[in-house]
Design a protein around this nucleic acid. Structure first.
Lengths: 190, 190
DNA sequence: CCCTTCGATGTCAGTCACTGTCATCACAGT
DNA sequence: ACTGTGATGACAGTGACTGACATCGAAGGG
């Protein structure tokens, strides 16, 4: 066994989620999180750029998964938004397999505005990545940006529905439902 | 004349924008901004909840203007997204009349991630307000949310185009162009 | 088996964002 | 003149975050 307990980063992430849940994000101190993980405050900030970031370690992987799905999509005749929707459906298991964790984490975020800010900029980065993937498929800059932003709106809606519904299991159907509604409110009516 | 110079809040806002432009957001201290405005750090934080907020005083007014436009829209047969697009076009003068200020402010924001986070949550609040206005028109909850989110994507794109193009004057045409592209990437193709 | 290097952590001092509390002072109304 | 009020100043305190340096166990070369 090494000098230190293994997986310091993971211990910090778990300690933070617990402490945030118990006393709230604002009352939890970085030193308190570190102590609970058997580490010091300084080490906390070596693993995470700031106190909020400890909740967003998985954002990068989700982004890469979705961008890869879009990039690897068959060069189909589908609209750009449909390609993104398909990627979102494919990412369902990421949430479904960690149902309890994802819900607990989202509850903490829902209670704190600063964490919501951080979540929003992660989604903005996701949008940029999706736009890049679309451009690789030949979609022009601004349409790619618009489709990516709309795709993120789709994700936010489907995800919120998945969180709100205690009985929800599969993510993909919520994506499809949101996509249908989105096309309806976008299309000219009558 | 009063004990104090008038418009402390406005003086702080101008001092902050200047100082951010000169030394960057991170290097500018709250005490420095206050001193430039002839006030103390404590007074700065009485006017603004935090250092970032000094740049976002006008967000509430824009939100109310856009929500009012949507709410006052004729109960038309147009799609919800068209109602939002019309509101965005109507808000053009807000930017056009303060061209230099808006661009300087956006340059500062583009240089700092924390400010981008704050901007994103202001846009999220705008989205909520727009969704509420649509619900007042009888649009169901989730379609209203989706249309509002998409409308904000429309705004972001049109605004970025307006900022990027040094020759851009009118805002409305950029909204129309983005709306057309959005409908194209959303609709089923072929 | 000793020595060197290296990576992860601890220690400590310092800056700055932000807050609570109390004092101050002009102005308005009485 | 007297008093209440609102905006500000003064000051101490907490906690997020950073830079610099010390420590220690592991891995590899000799």
């Amino acid at each position: 066994m090494g000098r230190w307990q293994p997986d310091a980063r993971g211990r910090l992430e778990r300690a933070a989620l617990e402490l945030f849940g118990e006393v709230g994000f604002n009352q939890a101190t970085a030193a308190g999180i570190a102590a609970r993980a058997g580490l010091t405050e300084r080490t906390f900030f070596r693993h995470f750029a700031d106190k909020r970031e400890v909740l967003f370690g998985g954002a990068g992987e989700l982004q890469e998964l979705l961008a890869r799905e879009v990039r690897d999509a068959p060069r189909s005749q589908a609209a750009p938004l449909d390609a993104i929707a398909a990627a979102l459906e494919a990412a369902g298991p990421v949430f479904e397999e960690r149902r309890a964790f994802v819900r607990q984490r989202q509850g903490v975020i829902a209670d704190n505005v600063e964490l919501q800010e951080r979540e929003l900029i992660k989604l903005a980065r996701l949008s940029s990545a999706l736009a890049g993937a679309l451009r690789d498929h030949g979609v022009p800059d601004w349409p790619a940006t618009l489709a990516a932003e709309t795709g993120v709106a789709l994700f936010k809606t489907a995800f919120q529905r998945w969180i709100d519904d205690p009985d929800a299991r599969e993510f993909a159907p919520l994506v499809r439902r949101s996509l249908a509604e989105l096309k309806a409110v976008t299309a000219d009516s009558l």
